[in-house]
């Protein structure tokens, strides 16, 4: 018994001493920029990604006091911001949590993020059979701005409505009158709420136009949905311009901050992929956005990302 007591007590004391030392050593906040007093919460890969911490340092000259690896725009990042464990967080620009929690989305004034505007990618064969698809999807996308997309997402993730109901209510309010479709078309989506809402909107507007729609939702990553588009397992998918372009060109760096130019490049690449075509991009984006709490924004006067590089008060 004495051995045990000594061993356990010794281990506990050692552990406490070592942890106290490590806590004490980490808290030297260097004077300098505003960012040097703040912690950033984001996905674990953020320090290595050009559109995350790496790009913030390269484009904006920002280094934070600490990086806290959390999740990709998920609940852990949001909790970290709410509790003040981190002051800056990486969320997605269409995340309703930004508005719900009163976070401030910092303006990307040096245009670090590429144009991840929403854009439908469609099989040319489906359009040839039903030209109304082009009109209907372009009509829909013309109406989806950032506020609309965020609100649609909020209705599903915060209010708990079903994606199909949210899509129907929104379409009813628009009063589209597309017609002349016939036959069957397969609408796909990847596996998160925004994709399912957009999939439902595409599906329902095409059903109103007279087509029969087969829904193939919750399909997973681009590694799954792009082959499905090429092989004709799905005909229509809501995509994000810059990320889709850099996926199909295998990271050639052709995407820019201009949505129209990015979609034009995307179409050049898609021609070679079994006859796919990207239609018109929406104004709404879903891309990396750096947010702070209202309190932090007021304290340091933060409006845009470059404000973080200003000298601390």
């Amino acid at each position: 018994m004495r051995h045990i007591r000594t061993a356990v007590l010794g281990a506990a004391i050692l552990a406490l001493i070592v942890s106290a030392c490590s806590l004490g050593g980490g808290s030297q906040a260097s004077r300098g920029t505003i960012a040097s007093q703040l912690s950033l919460a984001g996905p674990p890969e953020c320090p290595e990604r050009p559109f995350c911490l790496k790009g913030l340092t390269a484009t904006y000259g920002i280094t934070f006091k600490e990086f806290k690896p959390t999740d990709a725009g998920g609940p852990i990042t949001i909790e970290a911001l709410k509790r003040g464990d981190a002051q800056v967080g990486l969320l997605f620009t269409s995340d309703p949590a930004i508005a719900v929690n009163g976070f401030v989305l910092l303006r990307d004034d040096k245009q670090l993020q590429l144009a991840d505007n929403l854009v439908p990618v469609v099989r040319q064969a489906a359009i040839d059979a039903n030209p109304v698809i082009t009109d209907a999807l372009n009509g829909v996308m013309a109406k989806i701005d950032q506020a609309t997309l965020t609100d649609l997402n909020k209705q599903v993730t915060v209010d708990g409505s079903a994606a199909a109901d949210v899509a129907k209510a929104w379409l009813d309010a628009q009063g589209f009158t597309f017609s002349g479709g016939s036959g069957t078309v397969k609408v796909g989506s990847t596996n998160f709420y925004e994709q399912e809402i957009l999939g439902e909107i595409y599906a329902q507007v095409l059903e109103q136009a007279g087509l029969t729609v087969e829904r193939k939702f919750q399909l997973g990553s681009r590694e799954i949905v792009f082959p499905a588009l090429e092989s004709g397992d799905i005909d229509i998918l809501a995509e994000y311009a810059a990320t889709a372009l850099e996926f199909v060109n295998k990271g050639a760096g052709e995407a820019s901050t201009d949505p129209v130019a990015t979609v034009a490049k995307l179409n050049e690449r898609l021609v070679g992929m079994g006859g796919l075509v990207a239609l018109d991009p929406a104004a709404a984006t879903d891309q990396n956005g750096f947010v702070v709490t209202r309190e932090t924004a007021d304290k340091f006067g933060l409006v845009s990302i470059s404000d973080l590089a200003k000298p601390a008060p």
Partner: peptide, 19 residues
């Protein structure tokens, strides 16, 4: 612990998946 920004050896596993 690594899933909630903690340290430890889980850091390698979580970061390895993410990267």
């Amino acid at each position: 612990a690594a899933l909630v920004a903690g340290g430890g050896l889980g850091r390698y596993i979580v970061d390895g998946f993410a990267r």
